[in-house]
Design a protein around this nucleic acid. Structure first.
Length: 585
RNA sequence: GGGCACUUAGCUCAGUCUGGACAGAGUGCUUGGCUUCGGACCAAGUUGCCGCGGGUUCAAAUCCUGCAGUGCCCA
């Protein structure tokens, strides 16, 4: 309802200003401080003071007088407080919020008939997913979720860099070394933990072996890269053997979050189908192309990049970015919009990519990047090659273990006698443990750097997932106990008179606007911030307004409807964040 | 050397895009609340040169600019 109210007020205020021949480009609409009863406010009077030649409070009063509240949807009253014009909602605003909230899909926006591809994670298939990379699938999944919930038709892609030097090194190492030449046991019984040992062994060899042996190895690695470039079938199969196995393991790890994908798009696809070659030919024809230092380059200083972008080596082989350009044109062919979630270390590359795409005549306004900062360890970076870092699997295991302990120690304190089974405990441990990790990451602004510390990442207190999940479980508990679902016709919203109920309904009313905003801005953390506000509103309601034990049947039924709307709201908010909504905990 | 980001309470963070009403949460610390629909909860108190300096504005945590610290990138 907040969206409708906002639209109605915008229209009314615009009309009021136009009627007096005043500018309507900046309405100064904002949400007033919490302790004020108004739902929207305008500070437009400040800006008009010099133009009109009157003090702001007087202007505010005149504009307010211009608006007939009775004619505007959901508008109950227009008041002024000094220079501010305050807009108050009417009874229908809360009543219709209550009705809208009965839908299980509450908050979902109308379908937009727009195809969006969200590319995220796209980590090179070199080994187990570590925590340094985990921000990407968690953020990316939430971005895709919020866009989907906001009505876009979303596909999730993982772009597989299977044509780079890393994969050539891996393939060579995998074929060269025998199991007994590896100096460690797999850290975990899954394929990528097994195979990464070859990758590490290979890299160590290249750093420490006799120079002649290294040269021989490098020749083999170069031949793999050339084979890929030439479209050699056998070379593709060799690399594929390694890539698909490692990727399978990484996929299994990511599915624990869960982060799933509609497609794994391989870089080699754009070498095989000739699109990379075509693209390079087209780049050569542009006025930005130069041949310098034995390489084809693009001069991008016009776009703010001092350094040239090399797109073809002297031997005619393409580079990572060239193939990614072909990849992006392919996205543009198949989607209306492309969103890419990537670490700040790829920011320059992304900028150059965008410049090159625009040189090629693409509409780059359909391209959006979501940039996040790296997750570091207190004493340095995480690296798959060197084998440093905390693995995502270990973080999730530890979090689940701690959550299980938490459930078990709380078991005796439970007031509710619902006799949790062993299966329940395990379910809750997973929901809370994994939810806490996701929530911790998704609730922060992606641009801020994170230093990983166990205790901080696994803190179940504070503004964390369990707090919000608990609200959902509470809703479920009450609804289950009620065992009757009053029909909408029986509900009279007018009996909901307590300020806590009103505050809760107001919070519920804002949810669709939060979804819209988070989707427009590609900022899922806004939804996380909202879940905390929601939790506070709900808990205040819970404290002051008994539902099942409410005396009057009308009040009980109406409050049940509030709980039901609350459940839908918080369940949907959690699902956007990718955090499980437990029925009990 | 150049570019991009970040800096808000002891700690972890919202708020910054789009300037507006006394700068918000959690945690910590000091208190209080289960004859009760779920205490992983709630209530009260405490905590601030919004990194520093300048500028724009009726109004700046928010916009511009210089500087510092931190992170990332470029050869």
């Amino acid at each position: 309802m907040f969206r409708a109210f906002h639209a109605a007020v915008t229209e009314a205020l615009t009309a009021a200003l136009s009627a007096r021949d005043l500018p309507t480009d900046d309405l100064g609409l904002e949400e007033p401080p919490e302790d004020l009863p108004a739902t929207l406010a305008s500070s437009v009077a400040f800006r008009l003071a010099s133009e009109v030649g009157a003090p702001p409070p007087q202007i505010a009063a005149e504009i307010a007088g211009e608006i007939d509240a009775a004619e505007i949807a959901y508008l109950g009253d227009v008041t002024t407080q000094g220079p501010y014009i305050n807009f108050h909602t009417d009874e229908a605003y809360l009543a219709e919020t209550l009705i809208a909230g009965q839908e299980t899909t509450y908050g979902a926006l109308a379908s937009k008939d727009e195809r969006v591809v969200v590319e995220h994670t796209s980590a090179n298939p070199t080994g187990p997913v570590h925590v340094g990379r985990a921000r990407n699938p968690i953020l990316g999944d939430a971005v895709a979720n919020v866009l989907s919930f906001a009505g876009y038709d979303v596909d999730r892609h993982y772009y597989v860099n299977d044509a780079g030097r890393q994969m050539a090194v891996f393939t060579w190492a995998y074929e060269t070394f025998a199991e007994d030449e590896l100096d460690e046991e797999p850290a975990r019984d899954r394929i990528e933990y097994d195979l990464v040992r070859y990758y590490r062994r290979g890299n160590a060899y290249l750093e420490t072996a006799d120079p002649n042996d290294v040269d021989a190895a490098e020749a083999e690695i170069a031949s793999i890269l050339q084979g890929l470039e030439a479209g050699d079938e056998e070379t593709y199969e060799r690399v594929k053997t390694v890539v698909d196995q490692v990727l399978g393991g990484m996929k299994a790890c990511l599915s624990r979050l869960p982060a799933t994908f509609d497609q794994f798009v391989k870089e080699t696809q754009f070498m095989l189908d000739g699109s990379t070659t075509d693209l390079a030919d087209r780049l050569k024809e542009t006025p930005y192309a130069v041949y310098e230092d034995d390489a084809w380059q693009l001069e991008l200083d016009e776009f703010g990049f001092e350094k040239n972008l090399v797109f073809l080596r002297s031997d005619g082989t393409s580079l990572y970015t060239t193939r990614d350009l072909a990849h992006h044109e392919w996205k543009f062919d198949n989607y209306d919009r492309a969103v890419t979630v990537l670490g700040e270390d790829h920011k320059l590359q992304a900028g150059q990519l965008q410049a090159a795409l625009s040189i090629l005549g693409n509409d780059v306004s359909q391209l959006d990047d979501v940039i996040y900062s790296y997750v570091n360890l207190p004493d340095g970076k995480m690296s798959t090659r060197r084998g440093t870092g905390v693995m995502l699997d270990d973080l999730l295991d530890e979090s689940i273990d701690r959550a299980r302990n938490e459930v078990e120690t709380r078991l005796d304190d439970r007031i509710r006698d619902d006799n949790l089974t062993e299966d329940d405990i395990e379910r809750i441990a997973h929901q809370v443990g994994i939810g806490a990790v996701r929530y911790d990451i998704v609730s922060k602004q992606p641009t801020k750097a994170i230093t990983f510390e166990w205790d901080r990442a696994l803190d179940f207190e504070a503004q964390s997932a369990p707090y919000v999940q608990y609200v959902h479980a509470r809703c479920c508990g009450i609804l289950a106990e009620a065992d009757t679902t009053p029909s909408l016709e029986d509900i009279d919203p007018a009996v909901l008179t307590e300020p806590e109920t009103e505050q809760l309904l107001r919070t519920i009313a804002r949810f669709p606007a939060i979804v819209e905003d988070a989707a427009d801005e590609l900022k899922p953390h806004r939804v996380a911030t909202y879940t905390r506000e929601f939790g506070e509103s709900f808990n205040a309601f819970y404290r002051e307004c008994p539902v099942l034990t409410a005396g009057e049947p009308e009040i009980r039924d109406a409050r049940l409807a509030v709980v039901s709307a609350s459940k839908h709201t918080i369940a949907n908010a959690l699902s956007i964040l990718g955090v499980a909504a437990p029925e009990s905990m």
